[in-house]
């Protein structure tokens, strides 16, 4: 810094180490508990040390929580949301920034309005929607007497029941969470900073719009995409309310939801070692993603939310 302050520097580092220790303590304590056998975990107080039962607890957590299936579900959901969100909003932003058409403004405003509306505030109707995506179309279908028109065309009695159910499916886990204005907004802001000359040059060279998108925009957006991959993967993996609502089949539960069944309740055997081992397994993938892509993530987070 500006002046020499050895005492203050010492205090700074001391406080930092203490801060890191306090922030890390819940995890370290959970790791300790997950290495101990049941007799030691249920001692009061639990001994503060590492045991040798780590693998035993891990494997019983894996079996009892059906973690293989659930981690796979979480992976599909998180990946689906990440890929879906990023591709939908890349295309959307490209359309809004690089084309001029009649409904451009309306399209942008209608997407932008959803910026801050989390799924939590509209759970019931969104659930109904997922139970039958074609639901709202049925009255229209009936109103237009399309049944009879169709019957007349094929000369046969036909009754159409529009039904597309997303409950207990990967589509249902992913699709409603793919709609996000934040990514579209970010890509829009970014595209606006790209020099005009690039587009002009591409047009002079006779490149088609999609060619320009693939050869110029995509490579330039790499950093932004990397940052969004981290943020959206964590977002997707950690979803709680939505998967809780639309999955009833245990084979479709995601890992974060499944953990609740492993928490020992008042009358159970207090197998906290198993519950915490499972929690550690489930939290590992997003932590790895964040740490391995830390550089982009920090830059992206600050860019996106501001």
């Amino acid at each position: 810094m500006v002046e020499k302050t050895p005492i203050l520097d010492f205090v700074t580092y001391l406080l930092l180490i203490m801060g890191i220790a306090i922030v890390g303590f819940p995890i370290i304590y959970a790791i300790m508990a997950s290495t101990l056998p049941l007799e030691e975990v249920s001692k009061v107080p639990m001994p503060v040390k590492f045991g040798d039962q780590f693998l035993v607890n891990m494997s019983s957590a894996w079996e009892r929580g059906d973690l293989g299936t659930q981690l796979f579900n979480s992976l599909v959901m998180a990946t689906g949301i990440t890929v879906g969100k990023i591709s939908v909003s890349l295309l959307g932003a490209f359309s809004i920034v690089y084309f001029d058409y009649r409904f451009r403004k309306i399209a942008f405003v209608s997407v932008f309005c959803t910026l801050m509306l989390p799924v939590e505030v509209r759970i019931l109707p969104t659930y109904e929607m997922a139970a039958n995506v074609f639901g709202p179309l049925q009255p229209l279908w009936d109103f237009l007497y399309l049944d009879s028109i169709l019957s007349w065309i094929v000369q046969n009695d036909i009754e159409v029941d529009l039904n597309w159910n997303l409950l207990d499916s990967y589509t249902g886990l992913i699709l409603p969470l793919v709609a996000s204005a934040t990514c579209t907004f970010l890509f829009r802001q970014f595209f606006l900073t790209i020099p005009e000359e690039l587009c002009e040059a591409a047009k002079i060279d006779g490149a088609s719009p999609m060619m320009f998108f693939r050869k110029v925009l995509l490579p330039l957006s790499k950093t932004n995409i990397a940052a969004l991959v981290v943020i959206e993967f964590v977002y997707g993996w950690n979803q709680y309310l939505w998967p809780l609502l639309i999955t009833t089949d245990p084979k479709m539960k995601t890992a974060v939801i499944g953990l609740q069944n492993l928490i020992p309740q008042a009358d159970d055997i207090p197998e906290w070692n198993v519950a915490l081992a499972a929690a550690l397994i489930v939290m590992l993938p997003p932590i790895l993603v964040v740490l391995s892509m830390q550089r982009w993530f920090v830059k992206g987070l600050v860019d996106i939310d501001k």
């Binding site: 890191i20 819940p26 995890i27 304590y29 974060v256 929690a279 489930v282 997003p286």
Partner: peptide, 25 residues
Amino acid sequence: FLIWPYAVAPAISGILWLFLLHPSF
């Protein structure tokens, strides 16, 4: 060391603290 808790799901954070603050353990 200070960034990684960002990746922890709120529900899991709940489990960790439930254990730390559990009335008997």
